[in-house]
Nucleic acid binder design. Structure first.
Lengths: 196, 196
DNA sequence: GAACCTACTTACCACATGGTAAGTAGACTT
DNA sequence: AAGTCTACTTACCATGTGGTAAGTAGGTTC
């Protein structure tokens, strides 16, 4: 991946995480890097190519982030809290989860991009299911049924907490109110898992 | 509200619930009702006007839907299940919650539309908080802390469950896979509330 | 030094976007 | 019969959209 292509993806990611897939354009990217329209198309022939590359890269970096979280502690409670912290940081930067916002655009997404989004959710859920299963095995978490289903609920709650907090963002206070609300909701989510 | 304006909102709502605010146009609406572009602008001078009217109407009809749910049973468990069923039906029709998808578009939304979306979440959360508080008072639900916060988590989980299920929709099976997944996740959510 | 490759630019394209000004057919009012 | 109102249409506008064909400056390879 060339340097320019990578910087294009950086800007594309910031735009998609705030505006969604349909509200950013090749011209936005061209301006950000002081290129022409066609210069962007040289690196990514179509918007679908760009989207696919964007989510593929996001999946890779997210996987290494989760690996870091996993290395930081053996305690499943810490790992789960670390997972939530990753999302908190994204929101604090004034962004949504890339795949959260792309999921809501799914109906208008090129099929290959939608496939990458599904793969992101699958991977993330598998990671969560592992952490949850470990936590239950060592008596730290309490839930019944399959860990996979609990992982799906956990992911849904985190993504939903971001998106329902998102309209609270304003130019004035930045993302403070949205972040605050996100932390309240996810705090309760973790609390519920560690058992009454 | 004239008949034509109402029918325009019907089509706009279907489009927004599947494609989002930025991926539908006045021309789409004009075609749907066999009008011209300008004919739509006669009823809604700007897209912001249309959006505001759309969410305002959605809030009204949602309020009467919740009232119906409330009348259908005294049991808070039934009321909560009824709430989830409303969303299940939306997803089964191949749509997202209007305000769920608009929330993810919040950064590009005209301010008055964003305000309406926030009001929808506030109202819905207040309703949920009432049901949850009643349920806890009669020993049917178990959670600690304020009912408001539990309501925020519940709403986040439901909205998140819709959005994470959304990319599973395909032309082939319609919304069956997405609906199935939504029901799994919300099933666990309700189960968690009724206590271990 | 000729050929080639990379990373672009210039100059387009057809089409969609939200929005507007002016006109008009038909109903209703006075 | 004249005037007015509603619900449009015709015709237009500037701007933005994803995308393309052809050219070119600079470096690398043979």
């Amino acid at each position: 991946m060339s340097d320019t292509a990578d910087r294009l993806l950086d800007h594309a990611q910031a735009l998609v995480q705030t505006r969604g897939f349909n509200a950013f354009s090749f011209r936005d990217l061209a301006r950000a890097l002081d290129l022409t329209n066609a210069g962007v198309h040289y690196h990514f022939p179509s918007k679908a190519d760009l989207g696919r590359a964007l989510v593929a890269r996001y999946r890779r970096t997210f996987a290494t982030t989760l690996a870091t979280v996993e290395r930081s502690s053996d305690d499943p409670r810490d790992r789960l809290a670390g997972f939530v912290d990753v999302y908190t940081d994204v929101l604090r930067q004034g962004r949504l989860c890339l795949c959260g916002i792309l999921a809501s655009d799914a109906a208008t997404l090129p099929p290959e991009v939608r496939g990458e989004v599904r793969a992101f959710f699958d991977e993330t859920e598998r990671w969560l299911a592992r952490v949850l299963a470990e936590g239950r095995a060592s008596g730290l978490f309490q839930f019944d049924g399959e860990a996979d289903a609990e992982a799906a609920l956990t992911l849904a709650a985190v993504e939903g907490a971001m998106i329902t907090a998102w309209p609270l963002r304003s130019g004035k206070d930045g993302s403070a109110r949205a972040t605050e609300r996100f932390e309240t909701v996810t705090g309760r989510l973790l609390q519920g898992l560690t058992g009454p």
